[in-house]
């Protein structure tokens, strides 16, 4: 990942850069693993992060459980870790919290029941807006064409004020 980022950045600006990025691959840590202990985030910790990021910290009201340092959030993370170790799935763990705290505990409303509205709305609105806009542009182009022709016929300055319905 690390290397690829560099290459992407380079590629964006200097088209011939991929070679430059590769040279920096050598990681000193890999060489000197002998003496100090290298701590790597465990698989468990990563799973906890993935789940805790989907839950809202109940007392902070903006942060996710994962980002929060509040006591409740810390305890929730411990519980999530225990549940993962016990073999529960992400789905089961989220349901556990949802059953006790309600949908409020989820960072986004579940796409079910009435909450479909919030998920469909953006696409619906964008579509509606685009349809309206194209329709409007078509009709105004037509009107403009007519005006142009009339003007050419009568050779008069535009007299009446037309409406722009936007």
């Amino acid at each position: 990942m690390r290397v690829s980022i560099k290459i992407i950045i380079a590629a964006l600006f200097v088209m011939s850069a991929p070679i430059a990025g590769q040279a920096q691959d050598a990681n000193p840590a890999k060489a000197e693993t002998a003496a100090p202990k290298v701590q790597v985030e465990s698989r468990l910790e990563r799973q906890v992060r993935n789940i805790a990021s989907l839950l809202r910290c109940p007392v902070c009201q903006g942060e996710s459980v994962y980002d929060s340092h509040a006591d409740v959030a810390v305890e929730m993370k411990t519980l999530i870790a225990e549940k993962i170790t016990a073999g529960e799935t992400t789905e089961q763990i989220l349901t556990y919290f949802k059953d006790r705290y309600g949908n409020y505990i989820l960072m986004e409303p579940p796409a079910e029941g009435l909450h479909w509205v919030i998920w469909i709305f953006p696409g619906f609105m964008a579509l509606l807006g685009a349809m309206f806009l194209v329709q409007h542009l078509r009709s105004s182009a037509k009107a403009e064409q007519q005006r142009f022709e009339e003007q050419a016929k009568s050779k008069e300055a535009p007299g009446e004020i037309e409406e722009l319905s936007l």
Partner: peptide, 13 residues
């Protein structure tokens, strides 16, 4: 202790 029962009961604060 650490509020585990609180989680079972969905305690916010």
């Amino acid at each position: 202790g650490q509020g585990r029962l609180g989680l079972e009961y969905g305690v916010y604060g």
